[in-house]
Amino acid sequence: MLGVLITLAVVAVVAYCVLKNYYPPIILLIAGFVMLICAAVMGTPPMAPEKSTHFFGFDLGEAFTALMRSRLPGLGLNIMLIAGFSVYMDRIGASRALVKLCVRPLQAIRSPYVLLAVTYIVGQFMALFINSAVALGLLLMASVYPLLVALGVSRASAAAVIGSTCCLDLGPASSNAMRAADLLKTDVVTYFVQDQIPVALCVIATVAIGQFFVQRWFDRRDASKLSAEGAGEKQDIEKAFEGAGPVHYAFLPMLPLVLLIVFSPMVYAGVKLSLQTGIIVSIVIAFLVDLITRRGFKDCCKRTEAVFEGMGKVFTSTVSLICCAELFAMGVNKLGGVFTLISAAASMEGAGVWVMLFRKSYSKLLDVFSDFFPHFTRVRAAFSKVGCIQLKPLEGQ
């Protein structure tokens, strides 16, 4: 029971700190160390005896070091290389070239809500190669958004579709896909092709159709606002393509995915290509293409700095968070609080009866409280409109 109380207290403090905008990795790291210390006091050491440094203070550091060693060469390095490649593609103008190539055909579609649905599909396709959701969103907002508004779609609908283009975490470059493939003991390309694509095609089609009908319904409901919104924005579309590379640069962001699929067990198993090697090869090819196209060796070398800038930024924002969160999870597991709660819930026979009794008593308590505090009745009614408080008792009570 003590483990449960400590776990709940630490989780509450972590939640408070995160809400107050403290740096999440260090908060999770400190919380993990606190729980490991508490677990050690309760008889569960942070490290197994065969891996112990034989000094408790060093064992705490060794626990985190072991997590770093297990994550950095694998998932951590994958994420950093992907981020570095993505920043490099943006630096040389390849990302903008890809968006320009994909967006140009959309301008031939004159039906606003057909364009809305197609925008979602094209955006989801581009998300496979532009791994930064922020970068893709900004590019689409600068290129497709004015076109949608000029055709009569409301600003809210256009922004909603663009914001949802990264809602599916797809592709070998996805950290979630890497982790899922690791758990399934398969390579990430096989997982992407055999497991993700069949589901993703159905989801993308469903969401695109839903965007067509839902956004049109909302726009018709707010039809009076549309005429004033769309004026004078179509001329801004060209600004999105400033800094875009030549048209053949559009194929550079696709290189890692193409290489990984071609040299995979599903296509050609004679050559084994890892994700990390595929990205490194793609960076080298992109560098050579940039050098041949622009013929400025010093400038081309300078632009490759973006690779390491991107790797460093994603380490501070994502990889460090993963490692610190895993130490936090280790502390939770060592304390045994979550396991205790799960075991207690599983062993409770007739738990539903207790929940029903609590619900009925809670409703009676609200009635009594409302009698003594008339103003609370209005607050309660306001909450009930959004479903926060159930006022009606269950049938049969």
Rank of each mutant, 00 (worst) to 15 (best):
A63C: 11
A15K: 07
V289G: 15
L19C: 10
A156M: 06
L106D: 00
T377V: 02
Y362V: 04
L81Y: 05
A150M: 01
Q196M: 15
V122A: 12
I26Q: 09
I37G: 10
S52R: 07
S363K: 07
M42T: 06
I82L: 12
E326T: 08
I292Y: 04
A346L: 05
L365E: 09
V338W: 10
I237Q: 07
A240P: 10
S370T: 14
L5P: 00
A306W: 12
A159H: 10
D236P: 01
D187S: 08
G350C: 12
G352P: 02
I130V: 11
C323F: 05
K272A: 13
K225P: 02
Y22I: 04
S370Q: 06
L28N: 02
T65I: 13
I209V: 12
V149W: 02
E326N: 06
A15R: 04
F287D: 06
I292L: 03
T119E: 03
N78L: 09
S154F: 13
A40K: 12
I30Q: 09
T340F: 15
M35T: 10
V271N: 05
D195K: 15
V338F: 15
G350D: 10
H54R: 00
K364T: 05
T165W: 05
E233H: 11
R294H: 13
R295T: 00
M254F: 12
C38G: 14
I342L: 15
K51F: 14
F339Q: 14
M47Y: 10
M141D: 05
V203F: 10
F339N: 14
I92H: 02
I204V: 15
N333M: 02
Q215L: 03
C166W: 00
E309D: 11
R359C: 05
A286V: 04
R104D: 00
I204L: 11
L138Y: 08
A83S: 15
G278Y: 05
P112Y: 02
S361W: 05
F241Y: 14
A250T: 00
R359A: 12
E233D: 01
V289H: 02
M47Q: 15
V149P: 00
M42E: 13
V134H: 00
S86W: 04
R359L: 07
Q235G: 07
